[in-house]
Amino acid sequence: MSIILDKISCKYETDMINEHYALKCITAKIEDGEFIGVIGHTGSGKSTLMQILNGLVVPSGGSVYYNGEDIHEKNYNLYKLRSEVGMVFQYPEHQLFETTVFRDVCFGPKNLGWSKKEIELSAFEALFQMGIESELYYQSPFDLSGGQKRRVAIAGVLAMKPKVLILDEPAVGLDPMGKRNILDKIAEIKAERNCTVILVSHSMDDIADYVNRVWVLDDGKLIIDASVKEVFSHKRDLEEIGLAVPQITSIMHMLKDKGLVVNTNVTTIDEAKMEILRKLR
């Protein structure tokens, strides 16, 4: 099981003179069970790339292979692809529409033609895993708080039992605790279901805390595809393209600039603590 992107490019707004590319010749392979973070400045093509992964946008060049099959072949079942590659858009709570939380979560699996029992079981499981208290199941989703709505919307995608889960800025607009809560839940679900997770985020701190592998997009090109440590060791390159290293990493760089010989290849608070203690003691 894998997803292969083979020289994907995506053209838009074509007139006689100008051609704009949202994506330029992207080649990558996603293995089963990976946790990939996608970063890039606004307009770098992150969202377009995510929509290509589940067949919502058709690339103007190159092919996407899901489990060895080209998803844009004539007879390919895109319907099935979309049930296996679940997509959580930005502000997914705007897509809530049903009268109760439970019905809303059932909507996805219902469209996959499952039996009633399967649908309800899957919806319960998804709500439970997202940490929604059972007394909320039969309330209107519109009466929930922002963080709860977001979790219900994600549960709606999880209920379809996707093998690949794509999340486009899932924590944006939430308070610090709500944000941590959602990302922790996603990490737990990933471990339990052993699915592949692709997380788009502007928060370098979150990327450093959660993912294993990072894609850096710049102007439609995949310029770095490496581990978290490796990516955040390219401080200057990241800053040049409008990104940054995590706060903690930049503190280590500042210490180094002041003449303290510390290892700057540090991305989390714990690592930074150990490194500074090592120096001071």
Binding site: D175, P176, G178, Q247
Partner: peptide
């Protein structure tokens, strides 16, 4: 702040962690 479901900036969290270690 934590009671209000908020948090500290990263730098201050690190400072507190270091303080807990007796620095």
């Amino acid at each position: 702040l934590k009671e209000c479901q908020l948090d500290l900036p990263q730098a201050l969290k690190l400072a507190n962690e270091l303080r807990k270690e007796g620095i």
